[in-house]
Design a protein around this nucleic acid. Sequence first.
DNA 1: GATGTCACG
DNA 2: GACGTACGTGACATCA
Length: 946
Amino acid sequence: MAEKQHLYLVDGSAYIFRAYHRLPPLTDPEGTPVGAVYGYTTMLWKLAEDLDKAEGPTHLAVILDKSSHSFRNDIYPEYKANRPPPPDDLVPQFPLIRDATRAFSLSCIEEQGLEADDLIASYARAAAAQNWDVTIVSSDKDLMQLISEGDDSRGRIDMLDTMKNQRISLPEVADKFGVTPDLVGDVLALMGDSVDNIPGIFGVGPKTATKLIQEHGSLTAALDAAADMKKSKLKERLIEHRADAELSRILVALKEDCDLPMAMDDFKLDGVPVEPLAAFLQKHGFTSLLRRLDAGSGSPDRANDLNPAKPATAADVGDSEGNRQAVPDMPAIDRSAYECVQDMDTLNRWIARCEAARVIAVDTETSALDSMQADLVGISLAVAPNEACYIPLAHGGTDLLAETPQQIGLQDALAALRPVLTNDAILKIGQNIKYDLNVLARYDVDVTPVDDTMIISFALDAGRGEAGIGGGHGMDELSVRHLGHSPLSFKDVCGTGKKQIPFGEVPLDRATEYAAEDADVTWRLHKHMKPRLAIEGGTTVYERVDRPLVPVVAQMERHGIKVDRAALSRLSEEFATRMAALEGEIHGEADQEFTIGSPKQLGEILFDKMGYKGGRKGKSGQYSTDQAMLEKLAEQGATIATKVLEWRQLSKLKSTYTDALQAAINPKTGRVHTSYSLTGAQTGRLSSTDPNLQNIPIRTEIGRQIRTAFVADTGNVLLAADYSQIELRLAAHMADVPSLKEAFAAGEDIHARTAKEMYGEVTRDTRAQAKTINFAILYGISRWGLAGRLGVEADEAQAMIDRYFERFPGIQRYIAETLESVRELGYSQTLFGRKTWFPRINSKNGAERQGSERAAINAPIQGTSADIIKRAMVRMMPALTEADLGHVRMLLQVHDELVFELPEGDVEAAKPIIEKVMADAAMPAVTLDVPLGIEIGSGTDWGAAH
DNA sequence: GATGTCACG
DNA sequence: GACGTACGTGACATCA
């Protein structure tokens, strides 16, 4: 029986616009811009790879727009009239798209007077009618009208968004439009489309459009129903703009009966001849693809297609993500090449290889995830691609019945490895090496010097991920992205859930494959990514800030901080008692028992049963019961709301702090050891987990009690030093605002100064408003956001923003310049050169784009602040040691604050040193126009140190 | 696993 | 005009 035919229709024109905006401005050896062409080529490559797959194409054609004029312009001259002309460096790429298509020996269809959408629609319907399956390669929402399931005699039609690697079929359409494909046109006609200049109904967006069609079943029915609606803006608009909607319906309809310029059978795929493709790749300098082609085809006279024998790799996907460095030539991963080291002679041979290699990857395998509790189970090393080994040290130890495999004694092995691991001339590469540093430090091995592929990736690509692709810096992700290889996963080896076994019980052959592969992959990633630092300008931040910070933070984690278990326990009990009392009162007011902690149940009690006013929200259809809402209800006199608020606060404090922190005390050290992530925050800040010690309560009196449970060891005190208003100071410097700079130089109250500038006088009210506005500026302002915060109308908020910009003109310029630069380059930068990428800064989705804009305004400020405190952290211990204060311990970092533990008698000596290191941390790389103010306090607990 | 909520800078 | 309109995080409880 013949296989079912599957036609792929590639929406080429739409694709190149997206590729153009997503890719860096590459040029070929002749200087012709080819960024979009490159993206297009890699996409065709990926499609060609799927040739033999179940869902892959048997037939394929590329459809292009021939001209900007179509029959729609005859109906409606304004159609697509507000489109800007394509960018200058995109224009010359249009003809190259056809070249690329031809290079793959694919058919290219375009017709005068017809848009690509119409040709796609006509081919799709025709193919489905003769029972072919159809996949439209596009993400254009107009084309979603065509999607259908198919049946015995009709093929199915779906879509594929190659950039998001997402199939779009009925469920996705339902998610997006809330209706079936045959009604998508009706929804589109109501909402209009600003890009194509389709009017729709003024004031109706996607939400409203969907709702109307869902309720009434069709556009006509919805428009007819307007007359009977209760009086509203919407009603007026539906009636007034009825003609617009009807015109829009015609414009969004796809013409499904065009003459087909070429027979579908001609689209048959028979492999891709190598020669023309190679010539094309060569001409435009797409070397990584060219190499793949060579590798895949073996000898040129043998295989002559691009079949999955050698898939185009994620190296190419990586390139399409903007990583311009080609993958260095490395042999494919071969797990059978790894060696399991079970005797001293073999280990000594590997040690010699490490000494010769000078650059080695190291990975430790342990019994747990927590580096402060985990026991060492084995170590793997890699010295070159496929040259890797695993040294088991504690396998079979926990399962008494199993025979313990032969392995070198742990102490003997560490003694032999120590010279390598501590040798200044041998670079140790790790993926998240802070973990290995902490584990090995507990066995008295201080590993140095180190490089970290996770942090290198962060320096290069922070923020670069997109929904569905993943932009993380984990090893598996990096390996797939840069090496085109999926390493064995931990769960492949150890299982998952109840069946999970400790790594020490994994058989040695399997353990060797897994562990040595991790070291091998890490080594390769380093080889691939490290050179990019210099090329892409990441060296300074990586070498001067993040890399030296790794051992510093590792040391802080190992120090941990003492918490007073008894004090936490007392608080827990106190909270529990008060919660129980509140619970009774709340149930009494509700006249029934329910789960107060369930927002769903609480919402139903408050709004359905008790009848308070408040709206539903979101797609989940749940009532909002958050703090703001409950406070509103409390103002209306709802005592139950006040009680729920108090209950919530206690519940939060108890579960997240007083209970959890007791459980987090390490039984061996008696202290709490957080884990800091150096790649957790896109802006360059650290984040803290397990437990998070960066969000210990301080803002309320009751929460503050928890801080007092963080205590100094006997005879010591805690010293807290924080930067005062650092982000506002940086904003004053970066935006060059004279009056703010003067105020900081003079040590004035900055919010008061702002109030004076804005309102002419400083009162409690104007100062509070000024403070809100100052923060709004840092976070990327919008009139609605400010209005919401200040409780004023948007107009009034806008007037305040205007006033602010007038008084502090540099701010407006800073915002404009920052956005302009991010739109052009794709990333923002801190004063020290740290990049954060914003792939959605030019998104057509307004909410998404504006969200990116706000984040992009904030990132340089928040990121510079992070750079500064990190520089201070790197310099801190050397400076203290210099002053014979090497025994002072730096314990915590909370974004703008450092916490130390030291003998009470040393406080006065340490203060000026800590202050100076922090205040001077930007120098000499950057000289700020504003002083960095430091506030220092000390006491026997963290609360008292503030 | 997603969602809602809330702790911090 | 929508987006319950601010930036950056992590943890917990509930519920499907």
